[in-house]
Design a protein around this nucleic acid. Structure first.
Lengths: 210, 210
DNA sequence: TAAAAATATTACACTCAGTATAAGATTTGT
DNA sequence: ACAAATCTTATACTGAGTGTAATATTTTTA
């Protein structure tokens, strides 16, 4: 639970171990598929106890998805620095900015295409991805509600978050499809995005969210 | 893969076994919670082999959620009989009709409230419910696209489906919350619903879906 | 109605994810 | 250098889900 300060030896070793496990796991998954690699095998390859793997990654799927916190941080920042802008608009502005600045999270290249193909081929990973979408929508709903000083259970906030995340997921999926079919991924992405955003703005009209 | 005809003895026995397993499982889950009942125990209580339980319900969670087909059938029917109405509007009309006719699927009573509380208390069931939401959104997207003669991957259809399902889930959740707080569940439900529907209609404006 | 074909149930053995616990090793603060 | 805190490990366990082949039951055919 440390924060700043020079990271001690312990923390550096932990980071190294975590990274090593993650790297080896990724390599094995790419080579042979998620379902065909056991945690025991990963532990062996990383020269570490099986339990240690679970210490760092409570579920096997977490070896693949470990950028949740990064995403949340981006949203937090955007909402904190939004000035007088409505929170939903601030979120939309964030997404547009990430697209235009070619941020790694939304940039479409061969890498993410292969990554998401692998996810699609694994039932466990697909399920986990869906779980993540819902978790993110939930967190987003909480942040939006906080921003307008309403209870975190406010249905309007939930509705906004669900629609925004839904839009984002569909848009990103379409961008991946476009890439595979040699169409312009970013154009496809923005097309869906603006459609969805327009809808959200109307749905939330009359509320402080927008 | 039989369809009509008088159901033979075999089919009747199968239906009976399935129902018996499901009933006993439900009882045990209610008594002691989903995670605290093993499939082995269910099998024993139902006087059946463990493997037989898995024959009928591939995953343990399927013992709880087994109304997917029923929902899909409702949507199929509504879209088939929609006449010249746009598919998204037909879907919205279906939902409104279910609400007004107090259809069991959307009626809020003590039963569903307890059911969904139990789901919320179980990580495995929560995950499965999310999975179902995504599956339903996917099927809905396919049906909407079919209805307007576009490929099942059409992003507009996907967007419509994602937003509609998102709206439905948030609205239903809010209705459950309203029930617990002694507010009018149906009023809460319809409130969120109409908000979401308005947004969807705008998002999809200019497309044949609406 | 009796045998043959089809299908359902069962027993058995197995893999693997995830948890619990306590002992041993390493880092950190004094 | 010592003690406290924390990380790793060995070991053993529970429970979900799969594969397979033997057995029982229903349906079909003759």
């Amino acid at each position: 639970m440390n924060a700043s300060n020079p990271p001690g030896l312990r923390d550096r070793k932990k980071a190294a171990t975590r990274q090593a496990i993650s790297n080896i796991a990724t390599r094995l998954f790419v080579e042979r598929g998620f379902e065909n690699v056991s945690v025991a095998e990963i532990a062996r390859a990383a020269a570490v106890a099986r339990k240690t793997v679970f210490n760092y990654f409570p579920r096997k799927e977490d070896l693949v998805f470990d950028r949740e916190e990064e995403v949340l941080e981006l949203v937090r920042q955007a909402l904190a620095q939004r000035g007088r802008q409505a929170p939903v608009h601030a979120f939309q502005a964030l997404v547009r900015a990430l697209v235009e600045s070619q941020h790694p999270l939304l940039r479409i290249t061969e890498r993410p295409v292969q990554f998401w193909r692998a996810v699609a081929e694994s039932p466990a990973l697909t399920t986990r991805a869906q779980e993540l979408q819902v978790t993110l929508a939930d967190d987003l709903a909480g942040m939006l509600s906080d921003a307008v000083g309403r209870p975190r259970t406010d249905p309007a906030g939930r509705l906004a978050a669900a629609m925004l995340m839904g839009t984002l997921v569909v848009a990103y999926g379409e961008a991946l499809a476009a890439f595979r079919e040699n169409r312009k991924p970013m154009k496809a992405l923005v097309g869906v995005l603006e459609r969805g955003f327009t809808g959200v703005n109307v749905a939330l009209a009359g509320t402080p969210y927008v």
